Amino acid sequence: MELGFGERDFTACCGSKKFAEEMSRAGPFTSLEQALEASRDIWFNKVDINGWLEAFAAHPQIGETPSVNEKNETSAKWSKGEQSIALATASNCSLQELSEWNSWYKQKFGFVFLTCASGKSSAEILGELKKRFSNRLIVELEIAAQEQMKITELRLVKLFDARDSRTPHAINQPPTGSMLKQDFRVVADERIGRIGAHLSLSTDKTLAVPSRTRPPITTHVLDVSVGRPGVGIEVSLEKWEGSGSLGFSNAQNVDGWSLLGASVTDSDGRSGRLLPVVDRVPNGYYRISFNTGKYLKAGFFPYVSIVFEIKETQVLEHFHVPLLLSPYSFSTYRGS
């Protein structure tokens, strides 16, 4: 038995116009399994980067109830159902935090945070968002594409069920996880150049999500004069890129230092992200500087800089370099 669907039906499953056109052209499908197979091939092999971003943009922000007046009412209805548990388990406070992180995510990556929200609580979604926020853009693009595929497959199941509930299908849940990742890997090497060119990225083909859960270099400030965290202190991280080995005579050469990241300490005295979350940190000389003069206006030190070396044998290790500060003294150590 052949089941025919139009472009509008497939647009409800995935907001990419190219995807809907290709699915409509590939049909009619004799089974759900056939439609799922075609959808994976089309999404990963025929839809370009513009189509991916178009599909991402069709989703409401996680934590927001989609309007029934949206262009595709079926898609809006499904989005509302997919987020039902997240909305039911969210407090006003957690919704506000989710909204803020969604905004920061979109500012960083240029597209809405995307996850297959079905069955997930607001706390689970927020935790996933925070974890993924530190990813490189190309890694996050891959993850978002996989999440879109999961959503598309779930919606194709709903589409077939709604059209003819008597049609048997051999699978009750669409494949996810490793199968989707494998599908993406098959074409990733061929497409990475085009994706990188579109987003002004490097053509780094290492797409694996880092095993670390935090950046390789971190710091915090403790104001030992009052026994409290040093809050609101500006922090910067630099790497020595000057010629030759770093020594006492050339350590203050401004031209030799390259800024890697900057942040401000939070209510716990911890800095924000100074580096991406990567498995390997390049060996070399690093410098963390703290704007202590702005924090302790009556103190003796206008700023504090800590220079340390990461050796070639240490590139997989974590380096926590805190600052213990008082108006007339400071110290540091390598922590964990």
Rank of each mutant, 00 (worst) to 15 (best):
K150T: 12
L154K: 11
I151N: 06
K158H: 11
E124I: 12
L154S: 07
A144L: 06
R132L: 05
E142Q: 11
L156E: 03
L129G: 02
Q146G: 07
R136K: 14
E142F: 01
R136M: 09
E124A: 15
E124L: 13
Q146N: 12
L156T: 00
K130Y: 00
G127L: 09
A144V: 09
K131C: 07
Q148D: 08
A144Y: 03
L126H: 04
T152A: 14
S134H: 13
E140Y: 02
S134G: 08
L137S: 09
K131P: 00
F133Y: 15
S134F: 05
K150A: 12
K150Y: 01
K150W: 01
F133T: 07
K158C: 05
E153N: 14
G127H: 07
A145F: 05
L129N: 08
E124K: 15
I151H: 00
N135W: 01
L141A: 04
N135Y: 08
R132A: 00
R155W: 04
G127T: 08
M149Y: 00
M149L: 13
I143E: 10
I151S: 10
S134E: 10
L137H: 10
E153H: 14
S134N: 12
L154F: 07
L156W: 01
E147Q: 15
R136C: 01
V157P: 01
L154P: 00
T152V: 10
V139I: 13
A145R: 10
L141P: 02
K130P: 05
N135H: 15
R132S: 00
G127N: 13
A145C: 15
L141E: 04
I151T: 14
V139L: 04
M149G: 03
S134W: 05
R155E: 02
L156C: 04
I138Y: 13
F133L: 15
A145N: 11
E147D: 11
E142C: 13
Q146M: 12
A123M: 10
I125K: 01
I151W: 00
K130V: 13
S134D: 11
K150V: 10
E142A: 14
L126E: 04
Q146R: 10
A144R: 02
G127Y: 06
G127Q: 08
L126Y: 05
G127E: 08
L141T: 06
S134K: 12
S134C: 11
R136S: 05
E128K: 12
I143S: 06
G127S: 14
R132Y: 00
E147I: 08
L141C: 08
R155L: 06
G127M: 09
K150N: 10
E140V: 03
T152P: 06
K150F: 03
E140D: 11
L154C: 08
